[in-house]
Amino acid sequence: MKIAIDCRMYSQSGIGTYLREILPYILKEKYEFLLIGDMYKIGHLEYENIEILHCKIPIFSVKEAIGFPVKKINECDKFYTPNYNIPWGIKIPIFSTIHDVVFLDMPEIINSYIGFKIRKLFLKRAVKISEVIFTVSNFSKSRIEKYFGIEKKKNVTGNGISNHIIEHKHQIYDKNYNEDYIIFVGNFKKNKGLKILLDAFEIAKKNGYNKKLIIVGSLENFRTKDDVILNYIKKFSRGDVIFTGYVNDEKLREMISNAFALVQPSLYEGFGIPPLEALFLGTEAIVSDIEVFKEVYSDLPVRYFKTEDSKNLAEVLIKLKRESRDLYEMREFILRKFSYEKIAQIIINDLGKH
């Protein structure tokens, strides 16, 4: 059997990370693979059972709809995509991962009406033509079923811890308390809840809170520019709120490890990985009490606050104290429950059966 895999998002964050982490495990299988993507980004993958089809066509583009190299793909037996942007003309069985339907539940995060309609068209079509839909949480599964029904098989794979973090699982970081800080990893989109965190941080500061807030990522890499938030940040004293600019995996791991706490104040997520990474690295995690976080983190020592309640978050920040726990034991628990290797096996098993 030969499986075609859409790898065009390979170098991106989010879905790209998911693809990068599961791909090595998938490619170890006995099948042959056709990888569709930018040769300069996936050409380093050296497996005897792969063929690379160079393709730089952007996702959600007109060219994707009418100029995708489907002839070569249709010579394969199965097609897998880690997203719901499935090009037209593919005639072999299709398998897709749909991580969330956030833009349907929160349409205000899409900047244009046309962009919303295009994404909805692609998503509806993906659900219709996929043999199996993989998703990352029971919450996402329920939202897909709300909008598109329950007819198609949906397999909840969960999510995982990246290898660049796992490879340091035997390392315990020495916490540096000379400049205590809390950390936010995300973007400016409304569903990420950064405004709520900033409100809470301001309240906490007025009550003597002495930690800084670090927001990881450069302004150029934030997917939605929000002038309200940018202007709000200017109100804080110099150095209280810090943008890091781009940081590589090693630096991000170090920053999360040395933070007093990671805060994920999301209004909506399909899964939400940063708190999992924080706990794995021995850092406290504060999360909103949205449904998916209660699902994902039910057996882990996160601190919840009421969603969209900045006063409650400020209280949690002020009262938070570091707990003593067996980090090695927690890491082993996380690795057993959240594994990209297990995700890859679920996907490859379904591709083999259908």
Rank of each mutant, 00 (worst) to 15 (best):
E151K: 15
I150T: 09
S162D: 14
F139M: 01
Y177S: 11
V127I: 14
A126L: 03
Q171W: 11
N163G: 12
E151I: 11
K152M: 06
S142D: 02
I129A: 11
I144E: 08
K169I: 14
I172P: 00
E179V: 11
K169W: 09
K154S: 02
I172S: 05
I161K: 07
S130D: 00
T157H: 10
T157S: 06
E145Q: 15
G149A: 09
K152V: 06
H170R: 03
G158C: 00
G158K: 02
S130T: 01
R143H: 03
H164E: 11
S140I: 00
I161H: 11
G160V: 05
K152W: 01
F139I: 03
H170E: 15
Y177L: 11
K169T: 10
N159C: 05
E179P: 00
S130Q: 00
S140F: 01
R143K: 15
K175Y: 13
I166D: 05
D174K: 06
T157G: 14
K154N: 01
K153W: 01
V136R: 01
I144C: 07
S137G: 07
V156I: 13
N159S: 13
I133E: 04
G160H: 06
E167Y: 05
E131H: 12
I150N: 14
I165C: 10
N138L: 12
I150F: 06
Y147P: 02
N159T: 05
V127R: 04
